[in-house]
Amino acid sequence: MKTAHDLVTEAKTRIHEIQPQDADAAIRDAAVLIDVREADEYHAGHIPGAVHIPRGLLEFKLSNDPALSARDQKLVLYCKTSGRAALAAQSLQEMGYLHVLSIQGGFDAWCEADKPVDKPSLPPLD
């Protein structure tokens, strides 16, 4: 039986990951930057410009939102350490998305690289 770690390791062999230092250019070039973490994680701080779509809703949101359904748009994903983003990237590739990138090391690596973080000043409403 495979573990979650096994699934992430396998997914990372099938997706494209970028280093945090290369993420700025990829984000500028992307149609959407997606934070796949949970709401409390997103509200505690996120990469500027990120849209919050939790991992559990990602496929449904992209399938049902005309603005996100174009399979040729460039997407950049991240989570806390890159496991959930790797699984999400693999899933989106299987759905036919052609340009999906995941930030290696996720939000933790982004913060360790001393990159900017947005922290909402209002409490979350969801």
Rank of each mutant, 00 (worst) to 15 (best):
D29R: 11
L92R: 09
I34K: 01
K2Q: 14
G105Y: 06
A25L: 11
T9M: 14
E10R: 05
K115D: 03
Q93V: 00
L62D: 00
C79A: 10
A70D: 15
Q19C: 06
L101H: 04
Y78Q: 02
P124W: 02
P116C: 02
G45H: 10
P20F: 06
L87C: 06
A11R: 04
Q19D: 13
A39I: 15
P123G: 07
L75F: 03
W110K: 02
E112T: 10
D35P: 02
V117M: 11
E94W: 06
C111A: 09
C111V: 15
E41L: 07
D40W: 10
F60M: 13
G49M: 04
S82N: 03
N64M: 12
A23N: 10
Q19H: 13
A4D: 08
E17H: 04
L75R: 00
M1D: 06
R14G: 04
L101C: 01
R71Q: 09
R84F: 07
L122E: 15
I15H: 05
W110A: 02
I18A: 09
A86S: 15
D72M: 02
L57F: 14
A86C: 08
P123T: 12
K80W: 13
E94Y: 08
A86Q: 04
A50P: 09
L98V: 02
A44Y: 04
H99A: 13
T81Q: 04
A70P: 09
G105R: 10
A89W: 00
L57H: 08
Q21H: 08
A26D: 05
A23V: 05
L122W: 12
I15N: 08
D6N: 12
A86F: 06
S82P: 01
A109C: 04
F107L: 12
F60S: 10
Q104R: 12
K2D: 15
A86H: 07
L57A: 09
R28F: 04
Q90T: 05
A30G: 06
Y97C: 09
K80Q: 10
I18L: 14
E112K: 13
T13F: 12
A50F: 07
G56E: 08
I53L: 10
L77W: 01
Q104G: 09
L75Y: 01
P66F: 14
E94S: 14
D24H: 12
S121Y: 02
H5D: 11
E17Q: 15
K12Q: 15
P123Y: 10
D22L: 07
K12H: 11
S91I: 06
D114C: 05
R14L: 13
L7P: 00
D126N: 13
D126Q: 12
A23S: 06
A4E: 12
A4K: 12
C111W: 00
S91M: 13
A88G: 03
V76M: 02
G45R: 13
I34W: 01
V51M: 14
K2W: 13
H99D: 10
D40Q: 12
I27V: 11
E10T: 15
S63C: 02
A67F: 04
H5E: 13
E41D: 15
P54R: 08
